[in-house]
Every structure is written in C-alpha cells, then in structure tokens.
C-alpha cells in the first residue's frame, strides 16, 4: 500500500474536473457551497476582495476556521499557504486538508523559491500566467495548476489572458521540431522534463483550472471553452447579492458550457454580481498575479 504518490495526488484533481471550487470563510458558507454542488471548497479567513481591501500581510488562515469547515462538509477542503512557506504547508497537512493552494493571494514568504512540494503527502495546486510558470510549479511537485487571473477583482480578463497564453505556448511547444525544444524551454523558463511530458500529452501533464476574476456563469463557461478543466470562484460567490443562487448557476454553467439555451436560462435573475475592478486602476505593487517566481 502506497500513500502520497503522484498518481494519488493528480488523481484527486482528475476527480474535481468539470467542477467548481468555491472560496468560503465560515461553516455556514461551506454548507451553502456544498448544497449548491461545489466539488470542493477553499477554506479562508477572508476572500481575496477583502484581503485586497484590508492590505497588510495576508497569512494562512487560523486552523480553527479550517477545522470547523472540514467538520461540516463531506466534500474536499482546500486551504492556502503563502508562496514558499513550507511550514504553513506542513501545518495544513497536519490538519488533514485535502489540497494546499500555494497562493499569490497571500503575501509571499520567500522572494526566490516556492515550496518543494515533492516531499509532502498532501497534494498542491499552484497558480500560473504562462507555460514556463506552470511547468516550474509541476517540476516542484504541484499536482494541479490554475491560471492566476487577478484575484478579488470580479474581472475575468486576466484569467482569459493567462489561459490563452498557456494554451498558445503548449500549441507552439507541440508543433516545434525536436531540435528547437531546448531553446524554446530556455526562452519560456520551463524545465525540460516537464516540457517533454507536455509535448508527449499535447496538454499540461496535470489538471488545469481557471481562477482569478470569475464572477458569472458566463465567465465560468468561457474558461471551459478556452480549455480549462474546471473553475475556482473566489470572491465572486459570497460577494454577490444571492450567493446560493449564483453558486448553483455557476455549477450548472461549468457542466453545460456548450449549451447556450441552458446558459441563458441559468443566467437569469441572479441579483447583483460582485462589484468589479478595472485592472488598469490597480497599482502595480497591488497586483497579486505578479507574485511568484
């Protein structure tokens, strides 16, 4: 019997595909998310929009909050550790969370290195803006990838940009003659081994979700069309007027992303979406997507 194998770690991500992972900050929100059909929840102290508003240093959530959420739902519970903070990650592993998000939403703890994720039993998901970033995280042991987008903005443009960038670079990598691959990976900052695995499969070697700015069922569906395997919704649900209804609609949208009549039906009467932010109005130092190396 073997535990913590790459197959078991990537396997849980495979099971989450076609699903919605929702940020929650209380047991009550976790129950609402589960009832709405979330395939997992992300246990947090604050959603990204509130982290952005609060400023200062954002850290791993209080274990009490995470434990309470783990107690009330039967679906997988994820939690966030700071980039490079392997002790926060060990604490989350000891709590028994099902996935760790090494996340740019929190303030990085290491300005050069991410966590060496290979020695952990718990699997990790990491953010990316391009293929090089995705494959560096995979080489460090990430079992799942997500686009970064720009968290807490309710603006999907960055998630779309990052997803298109990754997909474009995969298409390029797959079309290159073999002798040009080493230079291509040098230019995009991708480790060769992970790049070769990607080339062989014709896609990332692990599951890839969308994240960062998804606020509506249509936002979720466009990310599925662009080739994502599922979506994370952070502030988009519990910062909207009717979280339960919006959560249900986004779950439906991810399953029925090609069925426009159904999308039209489920997009009706959802109440106000979360207030959005124009990316250009965010000071460069406050852009979460630039965190990570």
């Amino acid at each position: 019997m073997k535990q913590g194998t790459m197959r078991v770690k990537t396997g849980l991500a495979e099971m989450l595909k076609g699903g919605v992972i929702m940020d929650v900050t209380t047991p009550e929100q976790a129950k609402i998310a589960e009832k709405a059909g979330a395939c997992a929840v992300m246990a947090l102290e604050r959603v990204p929009a509130d982290i952005r508003a609060a400023g200062g240093v954002a850290r791993m959530a209080d274990p009490t909050i995470i434990k309470k959420i783990m107690e009330v739902v039967s679906i997988p519970v994820m939690a966030k550790a700071r980039i490079g903070h392997f002790v926060e990650a060990r604490i989350l592993e000891a709590l028994g969370v099902d996935y760790i998000d090494e996340s740019e939403v929190l303030t990085p703890a290491d300005d050069r290195f991410h966590i060496d994720k290979r020695g952990f039993t718990v699997p990790f998901v990491c953010g990316c803006r391009n293929l090089g970033e995705a494959l560096r995280r995979i080489a460090e042991g990430a079992a799942m990838i997500r686009t970064k987008g720009e968290p807490g903005t309710g603006n999907v443009v960055e998630a779309v940009r990052h997803c298109r960038q990754v997909m474009d670079e995969i298409r390029m990598l797959c079309a290159l003659p073999e002798d040009e691959v080493p230079n291509f990976v040098k230019e995009c900052g991708a480790p060769l081994e992970a790049a070769l695995a990607t080339r062989k499969k014709g896609r990332l070697p692990v599951v890839n979700f969308a994240a960062g700015g998804i606020a509506t069922p249509a936002d979720a569906a466009i990310m599925m069309h662009l080739g994502c395997d599922g979506v994370f919704v952070g502030s988009g649900i519990f910062k909207s007027a009717d979280p339960a209804k919006r959560a249900r609609a986004i779950v439906q949208a991810v399953t029925n992303y090609k069925d426009y009549a159904t999308l039209a039906e489920i997009s009706r009467d959802l109440g106000e979406a979360m207030p959005g932010m124009e990316i250009a109005n965010i000071a460069p130092a406050e852009r979460m997507q630039d965190r990570g190396w």
């Binding site: 073997k2 194998t5 396997g11 997988p76």
Partner: peptide, 27 residues
C-alpha cells in the same frame, strides 16, 4: 479517510486473473 490517506494497492481479483490489479483509492 481524507486525501492524505488516499492510497494505491495491488488487489487480488479472481475474476480478472492471477495478476494483481493496480487499484487507486482516492478519498
């Protein structure tokens, strides 16, 4: 158990022949 308890095991399944079956258990 939870994800940290997920495991792989070689199972004896008579109907599938003598060779053990590689079984992946996830939560």
């Amino acid at each position: 158990g939870r994800q940290v308890d997920s495991f792989e095991a070689a199972l004896d399944i008579a109907e599938l022949g003598a060779k053990p079956f590689p079984a992946v258990f996830i939560r």
